[in-house]
Simulated assay, not measured.
Amino acid sequence: MEEPPTSPPPPIGDPLTNPSASFSSLDDLAHELASLDDLASRGSWRSVLDKVARARSLSLLRHPHDHLAYLSYNALALAKLRRFADASTELESLQDLESPEYKYESYPQIYPGRSGSMVPFCLRWLNCVIPIKLGSRQDGLDRFYALLDFVRGKLEERRNKGSSEEDESVSAWRRREVLVMNSIVGNHLSYKEFSVCLDLIRDMFRRGYSEDPVLVSRLGYIQMQIGDLEGAKSSFKQIEGMASEGKGRGSLSEVELKNLVNRNKAMLYLVGKDYVSAVREYEECIERDDSDVVAINNKALCLMYLRDLSDSIKVLENALERVPTFALNESLVVNLCSMYELAYVNHSDIKKTLSTWIARVAPDDFDSSCTRI
């Protein structure tokens, strides 16, 4: 019933080191980048690979930033399709990301007046993730910590230039700092290294993120796992105060912040096995946003704990029918199939029907083995 992991950054070129404000469209930034962006947004990762391969074979990529943008999409598509070794090979072709080869000023005829790195942030992030996926946890963690230092260096540069916290570039780098820190904390959390997680989050608070609801919520979940229920209540109460005062939303919308408050309350009810109250909190989330897949999934699980299998199945089936783009994820489908196994003698036939539907509508990176047929 945990919150979903933080999503990777978008694969398009870095808007800060490769400013797109001077371009009228994505296609001005790189060859047919808009169509790649559209394919990625629809989860058509195999088509992304085909399009990149075609552009490369026809020598359609003429400038250094074209190659980097397409390589970003290719590496991300390979990672989404769980072809991590191939994604690693793609990234290794770049060697040193800080090489002059990837600096605008190395090509004054192509990029007059520009300076800085043209490496998209997505590539830097994937460069940390892929080793972990291949079993080299320490290598990946070392890279994540190095990336955190890189991001903080960029923030410091902008502050030294007199940029305020409200400036777009500073805000973007602050979001990246939270993204990288969440990735690091998530990794330590998966190994139950709770003291490391607490130290990292508290360090972020000292750096001015004490009112970031995502980080405060993560602190609350860690406190729950180590048995500090009062600490968790205090952290969740802080987020509730942010929502009521209408401030401190961080990267969340107003609806997302309110739903975070309800989901946190539900988690506390779950500790006390008060599933009825937890269901009520999740229902508030769903009424506010019917695509809140965490609330949908957890409401169904609570109903199952209340021995209401019929309604728990209906919650998940209705979500898949109503908002398949959001509800179709492996965790939800695993839970639905488990409920089928508990509720029906002919669960194999029902799961085959579900699997057939998934094959028709799911994005390329969906793991169909989660139906356990």
Rank of each mutant, 00 (worst) to 15 (best):
T356Q: 12
R206A: 14
N187V: 15
N74T: 07
A327M: 02
M181R: 14
L71E: 02
V294D: 15
N297A: 09
E284L: 12
Y209D: 03
K133W: 09
D86N: 02
A327N: 02
L268F: 06
L354N: 02
P64A: 07
L301Q: 12
L252T: 05
F144L: 07
T325S: 13
V294S: 15
L39V: 00
A266P: 08
N18F: 14
R174T: 00
R54C: 10
C302W: 00
P108D: 08
S93G: 06
L252P: 05
C122R: 15
R114T: 09
G220W: 03
D311P: 07
A34C: 04
E98A: 13
D142P: 01
R114G: 07
I184A: 08
G231Q: 04
N182Q: 15
R159I: 10
V48D: 05
L134T: 04
R288H: 06
A79E: 13
S72A: 09
K161Q: 13
M224S: 05
L268Q: 07
V323S: 10
K299F: 04
V178M: 06
D311C: 07
N318L: 09
A34E: 11
I12Q: 14
Y104T: 09
V279L: 04
G135F: 00
L91R: 00
W125V: 14
D349Q: 14
S57I: 05
D96M: 00
R322H: 12
L257H: 02
A243V: 04
D349Y: 12
F366K: 04
E32I: 09
G241M: 02
D167Y: 04
F366I: 05
L76K: 11
R202C: 05
A40L: 11
T89I: 12
I350V: 12
C128M: 07
G272R: 12
I110Y: 08
K80A: 07
Y191A: 15
S88G: 09
S291K: 13
N160I: 11
R137L: 13
S35L: 09
Y282S: 02
N335G: 07
A85Y: 08
R42N: 11
E165T: 11
K80F: 05
R218W: 09
K80P: 03
D37T: 11
E245Q: 14
V52N: 05
I201M: 05
E157N: 14
K233A: 14
D142N: 08
E157P: 10
D50Y: 03
L257G: 01
S291Y: 12
L16R: 13
D37G: 06
L219V: 01
G153P: 07
N160Q: 14
Y340I: 02
H65F: 13
L94V: 02
L354Y: 01
G116M: 03
R176G: 11
Y282F: 10
V151P: 12
C197H: 04
V196S: 10
G220Y: 03
E330I: 03
K351M: 10
R143N: 02
I132A: 05
F205M: 01
G248P: 04
I239D: 01
L215M: 07
A278L: 00
A75F: 00
S355I: 08
Y275Q: 00
L268C: 06
